[in-house]
């Protein structure tokens, strides 16, 4: 049974790289989006405080809530990263499996 491992690994890495390259820009877009929303929210809170619609204690509490909101939004980027990593790892594995199975089938 002969398996061309260098070719097989090159193909597997190519499959994994393709999975990352195709989907990774979504994370960047999302981070840009939540950055803009965070800025808008901070501006709204600051304006409300400046206009006297909220007191100093509420202002501080709102800034804390805004930080917690940003942290929750960043969890989405974590899900995206994990999902893309899963897709890439499995693309690599599937390509190796297919190559080895083809070599085994030739022997059988």
């Amino acid at each position: 049974m002969k398996i061309d491992w260098p070719v097989l690994f090159r193909d597997a890495l190519g499959a994994a790289r393709s999975a990352v390259e195709k989907n990774a820009p979504q994370i960047e877009d999302f981070l840009r989006e939540i950055g803009r929303a965070h800025e808008d929210a901070i501006r709204s809170i600051g304006d409300a405080y400046a206009d006297g619609d909220i007191d100093a204690e509420t202002f501080a509490s709102e800034l804390d809530d805004e930080a917690a909101t940003l942290a929750a939004e960043l969890r989405v980027a974590a899900v995206m990263s994990k999902a893309i990593a899963q897709r890439a790892a499995n693309a690599f594995r599937d390509t190796v499996l297919a190559g080895v199975n083809a070599a085994v089938a030739a022997v059988l």
Binding site: V79, R87, D94
Partner: peptide, 12 residues
């Protein structure tokens, strides 16, 4: 909702 939909990224 985006976190839920991001899980589709894992499907090959």
């Amino acid at each position: 909702l985006k976190a839920e939909q991001a899980k589709k990224l894992a499907a090959p």
